[in-house]
Design a protein around this nucleic acid. Structure first.
Lengths: 368, 368
DNA sequence: TTGTAAGCGTTATCAG
DNA sequence: CTGATAACGCTTACAA
């Protein structure tokens, strides 16, 4: 999964055999307890009754197994298995317990970059035996994105032991106060004003430097950048681009783009190409804008004279028909390290930068 | 009460005074209310005290507002606002109430097609004042995808009034029994064996017919299809393709693809082009496979002789450098109608097919 | 080790 | 409309 350039699509479904039904329904003959459990989820009480122990003991088996005798533990566990019992995290959390639930709040489910981060984090959480609850924090639809406070407070009520925020969530202050007490880690975004919040993100300064070094190494001197003021990420990348250019004694030609879509990238690239001294290389703040630029460049027949680079190394960049040089920000590592930070009880609110890598493809050739 | 105006608003961080922990017992005297609420979420009791009404009345205001006098309603509401009170859905659900929560279980968060469905559904749910909780139902990582039972049972414990399953979730039987009693609607997948479950999906038969009609209309006679046995969706589309061909008195050339990635589509297309009588048009079961095919076709310089079509009309298809003719399955409508079905109390477990639309782009031209 | 009882925040019921 | 009380499933003192 997640191999660069190819990605399975929607259509694959898991055509497995219908899984064995571990049902709470009373179909396990001899137990007299089963009459009660018909039609509803088995509770701790049902388990206790079947195992012939007390309710508290059952609870103990799950919370501190070491303090219960192996024999009784076994009795409880097999009773639980027979009834298909699963602890009710909801009821548990009502008690104020910060248990094994970890909330994952993703800013934009559409964004494939965030998906990669989330996926890696979920794997890490699952390995650690935690229950990662992935939710979308942002309301879709009308107007500018805004925080879904209902969802946030619901997750908060669940008393997660930690909260992983992936991407730029609109109103972090609310989130922070809502889950008051849980550890928070932000992935793929800046911590912003939030206090005592750890964050893990890609090192955009290093990434842009990789791009510029690469292009300068190819002989390019006049290099343009399509970016702008639209978001913290965009602003950071513009700065990083300019700084990297200065390191080489060059001045970058920055053009602002209204948004960061293919179309906007296309238009911005045309504007750059129409300059008196047009750039021989164009860097995009993301892959989509860069693809728009690439389209413009190829349309003008400049495919082998003007280099184009993207950022994020989404699977778009790896498609054969596109072949866009792009910066891989290390999303999997970002996700993994964010999860580690969340799980490590004595981690401090650090800010971790993950080192990026340049994926060179056909779109960036030698300067003319 | 002394609390008036002294309680910090929610947006104001509690950075200043460290939250004093107040013993939860024995403090319900006449002590000013604000002392108690420091450091913890306001509860219905806090609101009742501040508004000078009973706990039950506060509950009533939220559950059946019409049965409470406007004056008291106002008192309660402003007290709630002052305290930053939000009902605790978790506690509510413990009680067995099927309230305004709707669970959304998405099979694969990576899949942009499902994203579109989910987005439309969330908008519809929000319009209806429901709280849509978007979660991922499938565990990432090792091996074949399998259902995250913990997440499912957690959502079930929330006692959602409805459950929207988007995409092909591995073990529907478990899901159905878990949320026993809630209405379930499946979007963008077949109901499978599940009983009494409504479903909304694209009409793939119609979609494939659109494709074949289009190609035949362009003069194509030898038409290939890249698809296979990998999933119910793939199987359905193969059948639909063959049936549509038969309608025109033609026989389709179907080639199986190991998976449905760009790379696999590329290989399959090469195999088709190497036939003794190669097809003049290639239909892919999805956009990604079709893009692989398109790459092969263009590589061989057959770009204007061999037509290629995709399915799903993902944004890949619309990119200028790709320009892939594709079937738009109406994902937004699927999501919207699924949400409607979920909300309508007397909807029956129907199976709704949404009519697709063909988006013609540069990849499908006249037959030679 | 085990059992008992209180309590988490809410809703439902029911007599005032 | 109020106030009291019992659930919901679970945890956690505290007592046996």
């Amino acid at each position: 999964v997640g191999a660069t350039g190819t990605r399975p699509s929607l259509s694959e479904a898991r055509s497995g055999t219908a899984a064995r039904r571990v049902s709470p329904v009373g179909d396990n003959g001899r137990v007299s307890a089963n009459a009660e459990t018909a039609g509803r989820r088995a509770t701790i009480r049902d388990v206790a009754r079947l195992a012939g122990v007390s309710k508290s003991l059952v609870s103990l088996v799950y919370s501190s197994p070491e303090s219960v005798s192996p024999e009784r533990t076994q009795r409880v566990l097999s009773a639980a298995a027979e009834l298909g019992y699963r602890p009710n995290h909801i009821a548990r959390s009502l008690n104020g317990v910060r248990g094994d639930v970890v909330g994952i709040l993703v800013a934009d489910p559409h964004n494939p970059v965030l998906d990669d981060v989330v996926e890696a984090a979920r794997v890490a959480l699952e390995r650690a035996g935690r229950l990662g609850l992935l939710t979308s924090a942002v309301l879709p639809g009308t107007g500018p994105a805004h925080l879904d406070r209902d969802v946030v407070s619901m997750v908060a009520d669940l008393r997660p032991s930690g909260l992983l925020v992936v991407g730029s969530v609109p109103d972090m202050a609310t989130v922070v106060t809502a889950v008051d007490g849980a550890r928070i880690v932000i992935a793929s975004a800046r911590a912003g004003g939030a206090r005592d919040v750890a964050s893990v993100r890609g090192d955009d300064d290093a990434g842009m430097r990789l791009v510029v070094d690469h292009l300068v190494g190819l002989g390019h001197r006049r290099i343009g950048h399509i970016g702008g003021e639209g978001s913290p990420v965009a602003v950071g990348r513009v700065r990083a681009f300019s700084a990297a250019m200065v390191e080489h004694g060059l001045e970058g030609d920055v053009i602002e783009s209204s948004d960061f879509t293919e179309r906007a990238g296309y238009r911005a690239a045309l504007a750059l190409l129409d300059r008196d001294e047009p750039p021989t290389a164009i860097t995009g703040l993301n892959d989509l804008a860069a693809i728009g630029a690439l389209t413009a460049v190829r349309e003008r027949g400049l495919g082998d004279r003007v280099a184009v680079t993207g950022y994020d190394n989404t699977y778009l960049a790896g498609l054969g028909l596109i072949g866009l040089t792009s910066v891989e920000p290390g999303n999997a590592e970002i996700g993994r390290r964010a999860a580690e930070l969340l799980l490590d009880p004595d981690a401090s609110p650090v800010e971790i930068l993950v080192a990026p890598e340049l994926m060179v493809r056909a779109s960036s050739g030698l300067a003319p």
